[in-house]
C-alpha cells in the first residue's frame, strides 16, 4: 500500500511543511518498499513541486466549499482517499485534522515525529514529548497509522520522481462553524516554518526598542519571536511567544537577545540546530544551552551585528 501524505497549501501555494511532509513520506515509503501519494485540497501550485520531493502521484481534491479551512470537512475529504500510513505536518491546521482522521480510520495517531521511523512493522518512531525536554519512542498497534511531523525537524529533501496527477471533486458536510473575519499578517514569515528566528526578551527594556530586533531579523531573512513575559506585558503579540506554553520551534538558527534562558523558554526552542545567545549577564543560564554566545549590551551588539551580516550578504 502507498504511503499517503497531506500536502497543505496556503491560498493554493504549497507550504514548506508540505515539502517536508512529502520528504518524510518518501523516507517511510523507501523503508516500506512502496511509493508516495500526496493529497491536497484545492491546490493552485503545480504537482511538479511535489514530484520533486518524491511523490509519484498527486490527488487534488477540489471543492468550492472547502475554500476556508475547516478541520472536520478536511478530515472527511482526506479520509475518502487515504488508507494505511498517512503523514501530515504538525502545523496549526493539520494538527487539528490528524486526530479526526485517526478517529474516522480507527488508526493509531503519533504526533510530533522528529525522525524517520525506526521500524515500519511494527511502526515505531521517535517523537517529541515533555515539551521538548525528552523524546519518546512510540509504537503503533496495527497498520492504520496517522503521523504528524514536527516542523523543521526532518527537513526538506529533494528526491525527483516523475508522477501523475488526479483531480477529484469532493462534497462536504457543514460543521456549524462560520468565518466572520480574518486577519492575516501578510508578508510575515511563519514562525514555525522559519529557518532563522530572532527572538528577544525582557532585556530589550520596552517595545520601542524592537526596531533593531526587526532589522536584524530582516537582514537574516528571519521571523521574530519573544519570551513569555514580553507577550504577557503586551510588548509583542501572543503569536510570537515561544516556549513550553507558547510555540515550539526548531529553526536552523535561533538568536536569543536579552532572554535569560528559563527552563520553560528552553523547552520550546532547544530543538533549534544552532543557538546564539546575546546577554549582558555572563551568568545567564541560557549560555549553558547555547552554541555561540556574546556577553554584552544588546543595544550595541544588535545594530553592529546587523551591519556585519549586511556586509557578508553584500558579497
Amino acid at each position: 500500500m502507498s504511503i499517503f501524505v497531506y500536502t497543505e497549501n496556503i491560498n493554493g501555494s504549497y507550504k514548506k511543511a508540505a515539502f517536508e511532509a512529502v520528504s518524510y513520506a518518501k523516507a517511510v515509503a523507501d523503508q516500506s518498499g512502496t511509493d508516495v501519494v500526496a493529497v491536497s485540497i484545492n491546490p493552485a501550485d503545480s504537482a511538479e513541486n511535489l514530484y520533486k520531493y518524491g511523490a509519484s502521484k498527486v490527488i487534488s481534491l477540489k471543492s468550492e466549499a472547502l475554500k476556508n479551512f475547516n478541520a472536520k470537512a478536511y478530515a472527511e475529504a482526506l479520509s475518502s482517499v487515504v488508507d494505511g500510513v498517512v503523514v501530515l505536518p504538525h502545523s496549526t491546521e493539520a494538527s487539528s485534522i490528524a486526530p479526526m482522521l485517526a478517529v474516522t480510520k480507527n488508526a493509531a495517531l503519533i504526533t510530533n515525529a522528529v525522525a524517520s521511523p525506526e521500524s515500519v512493522s511494527p511502526f515505531q518512531v521517535k517523537r517529541k514529548a515533555f515539551s521538548g525536554k525528552a523524546f519518546m519512542l512510540a509504537e503503533a498497534a496495527g497498520n492504520q497509522v496517522i503521523i504528524t511531523v514536527s516542523q523543521n525537524s526532518f527537513g526538506v529533501k529533494e528526491n525527483q520522481i516523475s508522477g501523475t496527477e488526479e483531480t477529484k471533486e469532493v462534497s462536504f458536510s457543514a460543521d456549524g462553524i462560520t468565518v466572520v473575519s480574518q486577519e492575516k499578517t501578510s508578508g510575515k514569515l511563519d514562525l514555525k516554518e522559519a529557518e532563522i528566528v530572532v527572538s528577544a526578551g525582557r532585556g530589550m527594556k520596552g517595545p520601542e526598542n524592537w526596531g533593531m530586533v526587526e532589522d536584524l531579523a530582516n537582514t537574516l531573512g528571519a521571523a521574530t519571536a519573544c519570551s513569555k513575559p514580553v507577550s504577557d506585558i503586551g510588548w509583542r503579540p501572543h503569536s510570537e511567544h515561544v516556549g513550553q506554553t507558547g510555540k515550539a520551534i526548531a529553526p536552523n538558527l535561533y538568536v536569543a537577545v536579552g532572554i535569560s534562558g528559563a527552563i520553560q523558554h528552553l523547552a520550546g526552542v532547544n530543538s533549534s540546530k544552532t543557538i546564539v545567545v546575546i546577554n549582558n549577564d555572563a551568568e545567564a543560564p541560557f549560555f549553558k544551552s547555547a552554541d555561540y554566545g556574546v556577553v554584552g549590551d544588546a543595544f550595541q551588539i544588535i545594530p553592529a551585528l546587523t551591519e556585519k551580516i549586511k556586509a557578508l550578504k553584500g558579497h
Binding site: K133, A141, G142, V277, G293, V294, G296, I309
Partner: peptide
C-alpha cells in the same frame, strides 16, 4: 483498545560547551 504505546524514553542530549565570542569581535561570530 490502546493504539499507541511508549517503547522507551530519552533525554535531550546536552549541547557542547558554548563558544564565547567577544563583543568587540563580531566578525568572528559572523
Amino acid at each position: 483498545d490502546v493504539k499507541v504505546k511508549a517503547v522507551s524514553f530519552d533525554s535531550v542530549p546536552a549541547r557542547a560547551q558554548v563558544k564565547l565570542v567577544s563583543a568587540d569581535n563580531l566578525d568572528e561570530l559572523v
